[in-house]
Computed example of a mutant assay.
Amino acid sequence: MKTIKLLALLFVSAIILEGCNEKPAHPGEPTVGGPIAPPKTIIDVQEAEDMYHRYGKDIAPILEKNKSNFKATRSLSIDYKTLKDYIAFIDQEAGEADSIEITGLRIYFAKYDDSLNDGRATVFLNPIMEAGTRGDLRDDVSFAIKTEDGKSTAVPVGKLIKKPTTGSNRADLTMPIQNGVQSLASNKSPWTPPPPKNEDDYQ
């Protein structure tokens, strides 16, 4: 009887261990003690090259048209550690603001003032949160953290910025009050002109 119980115990243990070694149900999820599967967002190197080349052929000339000595910005680099630090920071801030869930990172196309970096194009990042009731049709919005009376709340950026007057084409919207507001928008990344021809990079 003891032998049967021991064999049964070993059999159950083997099933449990095998279950722990199963591959993840969804791409990108790590296996227990194993490698991370490629996320669904990964594209083939050649597909990336085709997309980059298509931009250079179809879009860049439009941006450069009628502008002497102007070259469209083709790429921006973000330091890996800086990006990890940024993600850790927004996780911390969201966690302290009623544990709001960050649903994604939005990348905004932008432009420096003409007095900075030759007025070149750039991008900035901002975390987004759910804007409507869960299950409803919605468009998640970028947010910042507002602290009042020791309580932190995630607030849509649209409630914190000076909005342009009707008919205005102002693009340099700014926060009217910085006191008590922690911005989560990130820029200050190295900007680059069209990358020089480098046979080791996308062409």
Results as ranks from 00 to 15, higher is better:
residue 199 E to S: 13
residue 182 Q to V: 15
residue 56 G to Y: 03
residue 197 K to V: 06
residue 194 P to N: 04
residue 199 E to G: 15
residue 193 P to C: 02
residue 31 T to L: 06
residue 98 D to H: 07
residue 179 N to V: 12
residue 181 V to H: 01
residue 178 Q to P: 08
residue 68 S to K: 14
residue 73 T to P: 02
residue 12 V to P: 08
residue 47 E to D: 13
residue 106 R to A: 02
residue 15 I to T: 03
residue 165 T to F: 11
residue 28 G to V: 00
residue 104 G to R: 05
residue 190 P to N: 14
residue 108 Y to N: 12
residue 71 K to F: 06
residue 182 Q to I: 15
residue 119 G to K: 04
residue 120 R to K: 15
residue 198 N to E: 13
residue 20 C to F: 15
residue 78 I to V: 15
residue 176 P to Q: 09
residue 12 V to H: 13
residue 59 I to N: 01
residue 22 E to N: 13
residue 36 I to D: 00
residue 150 G to P: 04
residue 65 K to V: 05
residue 104 G to I: 08
residue 142 S to P: 10
residue 148 E to K: 05
residue 147 T to L: 01
residue 2 K to C: 03
residue 26 H to R: 06
residue 162 K to H: 14
residue 6 L to D: 11
residue 183 S to K: 02
residue 96 E to Y: 00
residue 51 M to P: 06
residue 168 S to F: 09
residue 160 L to T: 04
residue 106 R to W: 05
residue 179 N to K: 10
residue 48 A to E: 03
residue 178 Q to C: 11
residue 194 P to F: 03
residue 181 V to L: 02
residue 97 A to R: 01
residue 163 K to A: 12
residue 146 K to C: 02
residue 201 D to W: 04
residue 101 E to A: 13
residue 92 Q to A: 03
residue 40 K to C: 05
residue 20 C to N: 15
residue 182 Q to K: 12
residue 194 P to S: 13
residue 138 R to Y: 01
residue 9 L to T: 04
residue 39 P to S: 08
residue 155 V to F: 10
residue 130 E to H: 13
residue 151 K to L: 00
residue 13 S to E: 09
residue 178 Q to T: 04
residue 15 I to Y: 04
residue 66 N to Q: 09
residue 55 Y to Q: 05
residue 194 P to A: 11
residue 78 I to E: 03
residue 185 A to K: 05
residue 166 T to S: 15
residue 49 E to T: 04
